[in-house]
Amino acid sequence: MTPARQYANDSAVKADTQAINELKAVLVIADPALWERLSTLGNVELFRTCASLSPPDGGGDEHAVAQAAHMTLRMLAERIEQLTVQIDELNQCLARLVERHAPRATGTGGHRPGQRSQAADYRGRRTRAAGHGDVVRCAVEKRLLRLTT
């Protein structure tokens, strides 16, 4: 169960990163006025703004290009939002599993008050401590396999 969730999480993070890169690439080649308006925004505000873009008014070839850019930016921003929700859900699930089956790794069992282990970073998005998190995840997976077989 845990390996599948970790695989889903890794896949969602990869797709999220790709969608963010694509959105920024489309923004760079979009209408200069749109780029100027959105380029100063932080990621969260940029994604929120792009998700609410509506097609510009007018006709002709120039407006067709702008409409395509708006639609693409809106769709990519919506995809990023969906992937972010999935990543957060998967991280919460993984954190619950680690806390249940390896409480010392989360800082809730066996540590002095105020002291946390590096594995507690599972709770943050993409903040897993390098190396240590893989060891903890592997231990949890082995323990779950023993419980389910």
Score class of each variant (00 low, 15 high):
Met1Gln: 10
Thr2Val: 09
Ala4Phe: 07
Ala4Ile: 07
Arg5Trp: 12
Ala8Arg: 15
Asn9Thr: 02
Ala12Arg: 04
Lys14Leu: 10
Lys14Tyr: 09
Asp16Glu: 13
Ile20Pro: 00
Asn21Tyr: 06
Glu22Leu: 14
Lys24Thr: 02
Lys24Tyr: 03
Ala25Lys: 13
Ala25His: 15
Leu27Ala: 07
Ile29Tyr: 08
Ala30Glu: 03
Asp31Met: 03
Glu36Thr: 13
Ser39Val: 05
Ser39Gly: 10
Leu41Lys: 10
Gly42Glu: 15
Asn43Leu: 13
Val44Ile: 11
Glu45Gly: 02
Cys50Lys: 01
Ala51Asp: 09
Pro56Leu: 03
Pro56Ile: 01
Asp57Cys: 08
Gly59Cys: 01
Glu62Gln: 15
His63Pro: 00
Ala68Arg: 11
Met71Gly: 07
Met71Glu: 15
Leu73Asp: 03
Leu73Lys: 02
Leu76Ala: 05
Arg79Val: 01
Thr84Phe: 05
Ile87Met: 12
Ile87Ala: 08
Asp88Tyr: 03
Glu89Asp: 15
Glu89Ile: 00
Leu90Thr: 03
Cys93Phe: 15
Cys93Gly: 14
Arg96Phe: 06
Val98Gln: 04
Arg100Asn: 12
Ala102Ser: 13
Gly109His: 14
His111Ala: 14
Arg116Asp: 10
Ala119His: 04
Ala120Asn: 05
Asp121Leu: 13
Asp121Gln: 13
Tyr122Asp: 06
Gly124Trp: 10
Arg125Leu: 14
Arg126Ser: 12
Thr127Ile: 00
Ala129Tyr: 13
Ala129Thr: 14
His132Tyr: 07
His132Glu: 11
His132Ser: 12
Gly133Arg: 01
Gly133Asp: 15
Asp134Leu: 04
Val136Arg: 02
Arg137Lys: 08
Ala139Gln: 10
Leu144His: 06
Arg146Met: 13
Leu147Tyr: 13
Leu147Thr: 04
Thr148Asp: 09
Thr148Ser: 14
